[in-house]
């Protein structure tokens, strides 16, 4: 049984259809790179998975159990955690408080100490407001904040947006450590090849539908490009 199953997911913003029948599954510990142009529905899918918006049709199952629609608490308890686009840290909280706020959603090994071991640079900045950190450090706080909830699946939206190549490499190193803990990942990155490199599978969205899913190792850039512009089915 797959860890995460999406069947027939539709979603809309008012009149506008954002997702039109998405079927997808993810096994335990698997990493999926999710590609697609702006407005293809990646962020909507991420938001929907973690309960920030309800599907208009279809259902999300985690370990076979159907998630209540639009309930972020239930999604967190089921093991879904989001590293949102733009990081969206809590500016009034210190770095450490940001890391503490998500703790307690589920039991697991991600204590403060474990997160600091993964990102040692944060330990020195624990009392500072996140606004005073560099972009890369802020992304680490965002990942750490999500890990604190001990997720089974980590959703990373636009993981390298606005980060320098050096910092991006650091963030990807961290994602590899997360993979080694057996956590499944869905990674959205503007640079698809970078996400593909650490993934088991790739998926591509176009106009609210999945136009391609395939193994990361064998899917060619040409095939990705075609799916990206909706040419392949």
């Amino acid at each position: 049984m797959p860890l995460l199953e999406l069947s027939g997911i539709h979603a809309r913003y008012g009149e506008m259809a954002a997702l039109q029948g998405v079927d997808l599954d993810l096994s335990e510990g698997e990493t999926l790179a999710l590609a697609g142009a702006n407005g293809a529905g990646k962020t909507t899918l991420m938001r929907l998975l973690c309960g920030l918006m309800p599907p208009s049709r279809g259902e999300v199952r985690v370990a076979g159990i159907c998630l209540p629609p639009g309930d972020p608490r239930a999604a967190a308890a089921a093991g879904l955690a989001l590293v949102p686009e733009g990081r969206l840290l809590f500016d009034s909280l210190s770095v450490e408080e940001n890391l503490m706020i998500g703790a307690g959603a589920r039991a697991g090994r991600w204590s403060l100490k474990a997160i600091y071991d993964l990102f040692p640079v944060l330990r020195d900045k624990r009392t500072q407001p996140p606004g005073s950190l560099s972009g890369g450090q802020q992304q680490m706080v965002a990942i750490g904040r999500a890990l604190a909830a001990n997720p089974a699946i980590l959703l990373c939206d636009e993981i390298s947006l606005g980060l320098s190549p050096l910092v991006t490499r650091e963030v990807y190193e961290a994602l590899k450590s997360v993979q080694r803990e057996g956590i499944a990942l869905i990674v959205v990155d503007q640079d698809v090849s970078r996400a593909q490199a650490i993934s088991d599978r790739v998926a591509c969205m176009f106009q609210g539908r999945l136009t391609l899913t395939g193994p990361a190792a064998t899917t060619t850039p040409q095939a990705m490009k075609a799916a990206f512009f909706g040419d392949a089915a």
Binding site: A76, S92, L93, I101
Partner: peptide, 20 residues
Amino acid sequence: GREVRALSDRPDIAALMGIR
């Protein structure tokens, strides 16, 4: 107090963190 500050910063992300 931490939850209060988190909620006034970003209510939707706070809900995501499992805050009641």
